[in-house]
Simulated scan of single mutants.
Amino acid sequence: MVNYGMLEPKEIRELIRKQEITGPTAGMSKGNTQANLVILKKEHAFDFLLFCQRNPKSCPLLDVTEPGSYIPAMIAENADIRKDIPKYRIYRDGVFTEEVADITEYWEDDMVGFLIGCSFTFETPLLESGIPIRHIEENCNVPMYKTNILCNKAGIFEGP
């Protein structure tokens, strides 16, 4: 059995590209930063950037790609955000339409990727302090919830 926690991020991304990893990445590549991803057309990118800037606790911004670039050069210069995530949820006009393992065919030259901090990043310090993490122990996704705490507005992005 592979110990994913000991693999380097580049190795994890390669396994994802081969679709050998197809689920949540909790506990993988311990000690390294993991990110959530939002991809928008350039026409909406500034509004979302402003939303992240105004709401750094909800959307801690780690990197933003250049328009049309699928490489997050600041944090993972060998990554390809079109292929390096186990599953992508595609929304059109705010409505979930499908889930796919690779978005290369959906990529357009005016898209901008936003990498946002992920709760998986602080798993290692918790584990090193002897605090068990249930979703890792049970090999399932991290618990999530909806909140009624409002975010600060920015352009078309008005929070929950």
Results as ranks from 00 to 15, higher is better:
154 A>S: 07
87 K>A: 14
9 P>A: 06
113 G>I: 01
35 A>S: 12
36 N>R: 07
125 P>A: 13
67 P>T: 03
60 P>K: 08
123 E>K: 06
21 I>S: 03
106 Y>F: 14
90 I>H: 04
115 L>G: 00
136 I>V: 06
1 M>F: 12
4 Y>K: 09
124 T>H: 04
69 S>R: 11
37 L>S: 03
51 F>K: 07
53 Q>F: 10
100 V>T: 02
58 S>F: 11
87 K>N: 12
37 L>Y: 00
28 M>Q: 03
76 A>N: 06
129 S>D: 13
129 S>Q: 11
14 E>G: 09
158 E>F: 07
50 L>A: 14
72 P>K: 04
100 V>C: 06
25 T>M: 15
155 G>V: 05
28 M>N: 01
132 P>K: 08
148 N>G: 11
1 M>V: 12
41 K>F: 12
52 C>G: 00
13 R>P: 00
19 Q>P: 01
72 P>F: 02
66 E>F: 15
82 R>T: 06
153 K>V: 10
35 A>L: 11
32 N>E: 05
144 M>F: 14
37 L>W: 01
101 A>I: 11
34 Q>I: 10
111 M>Q: 02
154 A>I: 01
100 V>K: 15
8 E>I: 07
153 K>M: 14
53 Q>Y: 08
96 F>R: 14
157 F>V: 02
51 F>N: 02
53 Q>L: 14
151 C>K: 12
23 G>C: 13
24 P>W: 07
136 I>Y: 01
154 A>W: 03
37 L>M: 11
46 F>S: 09
52 C>H: 01
14 E>P: 00
151 C>A: 15
150 L>S: 14
85 I>G: 02
157 F>T: 01
63 D>E: 05
150 L>E: 08
20 E>R: 11
160 P>G: 15
122 F>A: 15
144 M>K: 13
152 N>V: 09
131 I>Q: 09
153 K>T: 09
13 R>I: 01
9 P>E: 00
98 E>N: 13
28 M>F: 05
110 D>T: 04
70 Y>P: 03
38 V>M: 14
7 L>A: 05
41 K>W: 10
68 G>K: 11
41 K>R: 13
59 C>Y: 04
63 D>M: 13
160 P>E: 14
123 E>W: 01
116 I>R: 05
4 Y>I: 06
108 E>Y: 02
52 C>F: 01
145 Y>H: 15
102 D>Y: 02
44 H>T: 06
16 I>L: 09
10 K>M: 12
76 A>S: 12
56 P>I: 13
132 P>M: 09
64 V>P: 00
80 D>G: 08
28 M>Y: 05
77 E>F: 11
129 S>M: 13
49 L>Q: 09
155 G>L: 06
64 V>Y: 00
116 I>A: 06
66 E>G: 12
49 L>I: 08
37 L>I: 05
11 E>L: 05
144 M>H: 08
159 G>N: 04
27 G>H: 02
54 R>C: 08
80 D>N: 10
144 M>V: 15
77 E>K: 15
147 T>N: 09
130 G>L: 10
99 E>W: 08
7 L>F: 02
96 F>C: 13
87 K>C: 13
147 T>M: 08
55 N>W: 04
19 Q>R: 14
59 C>N: 04
133 I>F: 03
151 C>M: 12
17 R>W: 02
124 T>A: 13
101 A>Y: 09
114 F>A: 10
78 N>Y: 10
128 E>C: 12
32 N>V: 10
122 F>L: 13
46 F>P: 05
33 T>V: 13
52 C>S: 04
74 M>L: 15
